[in-house]
């Protein structure tokens, strides 16, 4: 499809005129920060954080009470902030629904045209928005994690309880270096959310903003039904809900980061090429 598009609409060779901003790290940073601020200024971003944090902290209390009643299967495994953090993966699906579709909106409204007449290369527009997606995903993930940690600390009895081998993502890391475990979780969620947000940009090049908000998260969930058996390890859904996949060899920090890193890079390349072609 991409190749077909490129054949139909050859990408414009850009020769910047005098006075035009040359593609530079500074310009990329300015654009990315501006787009990130725009995304974070949307109430949807913080409503998503509030809802997911509420859900995560509820899970934390429910599990704590289950332990108190003695009805939990593995009491040692479910105490502490890890319980809340393992439910934050929902943010990866909710965030694009809340703030995806900005590219589609900007194309439809003509805002993108006004940026482009100022000589911003198409590819730079795409890359800056992809980086903005990373920054936004990072900010919202950190905010959610902070809420969960604060609630867990207040609720007690311990911030990070000893965990059972069977029910934790990277249990050794959580046992020995909980802070690094939390940072790893943040990194994975961030890159995963940025990838899904990037997919939202891709969809937004062809469809209405609403479709670009809904299609990527739905596709992630649908992947659970497509990637089955040996293909499970390639399923974005399984990879994003990884804390529940405790017995898989690939559910480890490094493979997870590599998987989502590659996913983001692929999405970034496709989006950059398509934005350049589509807007040319």
């Amino acid at each position: 499809m991409v190749l077909e598009l490129l054949r139909e609409k050859p990408r414009g060779r850009v020769v910047p005129a005098p006075g035009f901003p040359l593609p530079s790290t500074k310009l990329l940073f300015r654009l990315a920060m501006f787009e990130a601020r725009r995304l974070l200024a949307r109430p949807g971003a913080w409503i998503a954080v509030a809802l997911v944090s509420l859900y995560a902290t509820s899970a934390l209390f429910i599990e704590r009470d289950a332990v108190a009643r003695g009805s939990s299967v593995d009491p040692s495994a479910v105490l502490g902030a890890a319980v809340g953090l393992q439910t934050l993966w929902l943010l990866v699906l909710v965030l694009p629904m809340a703030i995806g579709g900005t590219l589609a909106d900007d194309r439809a409204s003509g805002y993108l045209s006004l940026q482009l007449t100022r000589g911003v290369p198409r590819s730079l527009v795409a890359v800056s928005r992809l980086f903005a997606a990373v920054l936004t995903a990072l900010a919202t993930t950190v905010a959610s994690v902070v809420v969960v940690l604060c609630v867990a600390a207040a609720a007690g009895p311990v911030l990070f309880a000893p965990v059972g081998q069977a029910v934790s993502f990277a249990p050794e890391l959580l046992d020995t270096r909980p802070l690094l475990w939390v940072l790893t979780v943040i990194a994975i969620y961030t890159v995963a959310a940025a990838s899904v947000l990037g997919s939202s940009m891709f969809v937004g090049l062809w469809f209405h903003a609403l479709a670009s908000r809904i299609m990527p998260p739905v596709s992630v969930v649908a992947s659970a039904f497509v990637f089955v058996g040996r293909l499970t390890r390639f399923s974005p859904f399984e990879r994003v809900s990884f804390l529940q996949i405790f017995d898989a060899d690939w559910a480890a920090p490094i493979p997870m980061l590599i998987y989502w890193g590659i996913a983001w890079a692929v999405v970034a390349c496709v989006v950059t090429v398509c934005v350049s072609a589509k807007e040319g």
Binding site: A17, T117, G280
Partner: peptide
């Protein structure tokens, strides 16, 4: 194969 690239006020 090439767009005009001159700053304009639109």
């Amino acid at each position: 194969h090439r767009r005009a690239m001159v700053f304009v006020g639109l």
